[in-house]
């Protein structure tokens, strides 16, 4: 099955993933994140104020201002971090793979090649829909840690990515099918009946 090949690979002439110009995420996506966080922090504010009103022993008397100040600093820091991390995020689509870079303290670059993608998911939340945004998720067989999710794409772009990657998956499946016809391998993926979880009959009495 495995044909032996041994061509020399000249590393220096290969395209460099690190030199690829990354596209930033849509500016609107930052607004979406801001709105989401704002809602979250407003809800977070409720217990602080409630504490002040329920307080029967007057323990928090006059201390509400500190609570609010703490809350304010927290929100400010978080928004600052959000802005930083938004700026750090970027993606690139190449002919054969998708690159995504993110992280403020630790910069992570994830690369998924199109011919290893199992399936593609396109997500669109309520807020994203208003701004015409969508996110795309590429699933590989490498487990959840290696799945690639890119938020804040234009809906049109996301659709294009999904289509192009899906096409590639179909191509590969067809190639594999042709192979399996000629080689009679046991591989088939479009027919799935998963046996019952408890399929050890002798374990049930």
């Amino acid at each position: 099955m495995q044909e032996f090949k041994n061509e020399i690979i000249d590393i220096s002439t290969l395209p460099k993933f690190e030199d690829v110009k990354l596209q930033p995420l849509q500016k609107e996506y930052f607004k979406v994140m801001l709105i989401q966080r704002s809602v979250f922090y407003t809800i977070f504010l409720i217990p602080i104020i409630a504490l002040f009103f329920i307080d029967t022993n007057d323990f928090f008397e006059g201390k509400l201002i500190y609570g609010l100040l703490f809350w304010f600093v927290l929100v400010l820091l978080n928004f600052f971090y959000l802005k930083l991390s938004f700026r750090k995020k970027g993606f690139a689509l190449r002919e054969h793979d998708v690159i995504f870079k993110s992280g403020v303290i630790s910069e992570t670059t994830t690369i998924v090649t199109n011919n290893r993608v199992q399936h593609v998911a396109l997500h669109q939340g309520m807020l994203s829909r208003i701004f015409g945004l969508a996110s795309i998720e590429l699933f590989t067989a490498g487990g959840s840690a290696s799945d690639l999710k890119i938020n804040g794409l234009l809906f049109e772009d996301a659709k294009k990515i999904k289509e192009s990657v899906s096409e590639r998956i179909i191509e590969i499946t067809e190639e594999a099918k042709e192979q399996s016809v000629t080689l009679e391998t046991e591989h088939q993926s479009d027919y799935q009946v998963i046996p019952n979880e408890n399929n050890e009959p002798d374990d049930t009495i």
Binding site: M1, I9, I11, F17, N114, R116
Partner: peptide, 20 residues
């Protein structure tokens, strides 16, 4: 590392072998 990554990407992308 980056040099090797580029090589591996190339190898994965041109590979026609069945990985499972």
């Amino acid at each position: 590392i980056k040099e090797q990554v580029n090589k591996w990407l190339y190898q994965v992308e041109v590979s026609k072998e069945n990985w499972m």
